[in-house]
Every structure is written in C-alpha cells, then in structure tokens.
C-alpha cells in the first residue's frame, strides 16, 4: 500500500493511495460530522472541496467522496448553506405557461445579467454547461435549459462561484420543476387516477394471489415453494409479533401457515 501526504482543512495527514479524500479524512482519525452524505456515490453534493495540486496555479472544486488522494494536495471543505435564499416562488402559483419567461425573469432577475465569466462551468463537479443553461433560461428556452441540468446534484458550487448572484443551481431547478409540472401529463397515469376515483380499482386483501401457493410462472413458483418451508418458522414469529396488534391479521397468517403445511404434506 502506498501512502501519500496531503493537507485537509489544515490537518497534515497520510492517506492511502486509491482512497477518497473523505476516506483519508476518517482514516486519519478526524471527526466527520458534516460535509458528508452519500459517502461515495457522488449524488448528494454535500462534500464539496477546493483542491489545489502541487505546481498548479489554480485550485479546483470537486466532491471529496469522488476525489482520490494525491501527493501534496491542499484541500479545504467548502461550507455553503443551502438554506432559504432571496429567489423564492410558489411553483403552484406560477400561472400558465404563456407567462413562463416573465415569471423566470421576475424570480431570477439577475439571470439576464450573466457576464459570461465561466465561473459556474469551472466550479461544477459534474461538468454541466451551467452558463448555457442560465442563458437559455433567460430567453425562455425552458425545456432545453432543464435538460442541461439532468446531472445536477445541488452542491451549490455554481451558486458560490457566480459574481452576479444568479443562483444557477436554483434557477436550474426552477426550469426543471416548471417543465415537469406544466408539461408532463401521461395518459396512462391519468386514466388510472380516474379509475381509482370511480372506485374501479380496489384491493381484495385475501385474494388467492396473496397466499403462498399461487404464482404466475413456474420459475417463481419453485422459488416460492422452496422458501415457503423456511417461512413457516418466520410466520410463527410473525404471529407473535402481530398478536398484540390485530386479530384479523393473525387469522390470515394462520390460514397461510395451514396452506404451507398442506404443501409440505404433498
């Protein structure tokens, strides 16, 4: 195992090469109580860091769970509050889509003042074309703008980077949420909702399909029957567990047990 030396938030530590900054931080015995969430999947955006490598003039942003340790790295966690901010709106009171551009401009007036500095693009750890999204949103090309933000993890690094206080991460969410809530109307979902409202879709709690022996295809059936033997033990425990709660349920479970026993007899 190769060790590298690096500095995180002022602590000079040794990290095992191949491990992430977060893993090296905890392996060095340092307390990890914030700036962490999914711990490696790179989807929660909580572990933002500023990283400077030896002989590089500029520091780069990244996620500590996805960035591997390197010799001589200088690392600082970046705390950005995601709490309430000035760009507020009620998605359900945006009016109709004819006014979308006007609403976007009202809520995010700074969006038309992008100075094309590219700071947001450089800050994004996911390589999103943030500036392009801002420019598209500002001229009402909401669907195109929304698609550019598919991979956003709401780390808010673009928010911190923007000198015009555009809040790109939240603008991106506005156009995405507008697009979905105003334009997505799947017919299958709507039909099923109507059926449910009309009482045409109901549940039979004790249908044959809820009992162990019924199955839809042979493969699954074998698996179920095999597990069923084991499940007898479990159901007995289940009986005890449910005993306090509902008698009806216990009766069901008893029926299930009885059926399993029948199968064993066969």
């Amino acid at each position: 195992m190769t060790m590298v030396r690096l500095v995180i938030d002022g602590h000079a530590i040794n990290g095992e090469s191949g491990t992430s900054l977060l893993q090296a931080w905890v392996a060095a015995g340092l307390p990890l109580v914030g700036n962490v969430g999914c711990m490696g999947q790179g989807v929660c955006g909580a572990c933002r860091v500023l990283v400077r490598r030896p002989n590089e003039r500029l520091a780069q942003t990244g996620l500590a769970c996805e960035t591997l340790v390197e010799e001589g790295m200088q690392v600082a966690f970046i705390n950005i509050s995601r709490q309430r901010r000035p760009h507020s709106y009620d998605l359900h009171a945006l009016g109709d889509s004819w006014d979308a551009i006007a609403r976007i401009d009202e809520i995010f007036p700074e969006a038309t003042r992008c100075r094309h500095c590219g700071g947001c693009d450089a800050a994004c750890p996911k390589g999103i074309e943030v500036e392009k999204m801002v420019n598209l949103a500002a001229v009402g090309q909401t669907l195109a703008a929304a698609e550019l933000f598919d991979d956003c993890v709401q780390c808010n690094l673009c928010v911190a980077a923007c000198p015009e206080h555009i809040d790109p991460a939240h603008l991106g969410q506005l156009v995405r949420r507008m697009t979905a809530s105003m334009t997505l109307r799947p017919s299958d979902l709507i039909m099923r909702l109507h059926e449910l409202e009309a009482g045409e879709q109901t549940i039979d709690l004790d249908s044959p399909g809820t009992l162990p022996q019924v199955s839809d295809d042979a493969d699954v059936e074998t698996a179920d029957l095999e597990t069923a033997d084991v499940e007898t033990a479990d159901l007995e425990t289940a009986d005890l567990e449910t005993a306090v709660v509902e008698t009806a349920e216990i009766e069901n479970a008893d029926v299930e047990n009885a059926q399993i026993e029948n199968e064993e007899v066969q």
Binding site: A180, L193, T227
Partner: peptide, 30 residues
Amino acid sequence: HFAAKKELVAALVTGGPSAIRWLIQEGMDF
C-alpha cells in the same frame, strides 16, 4: 414472504398513482 401487514400494503399500492401525480406537481420528471 407473506409477512407484511396487508392494510399498509393496500394503502401503499392504492396511493401509488396519486403519489406519482403529486411528484409531477412538485416538479419531478419521469
């Protein structure tokens, strides 16, 4: 493995379609 509480499962599945509508209304895409 037939150990779930049926009333809860019934509430889960009948609430499914309106949960999807709610998510779309909140701005989730599918």
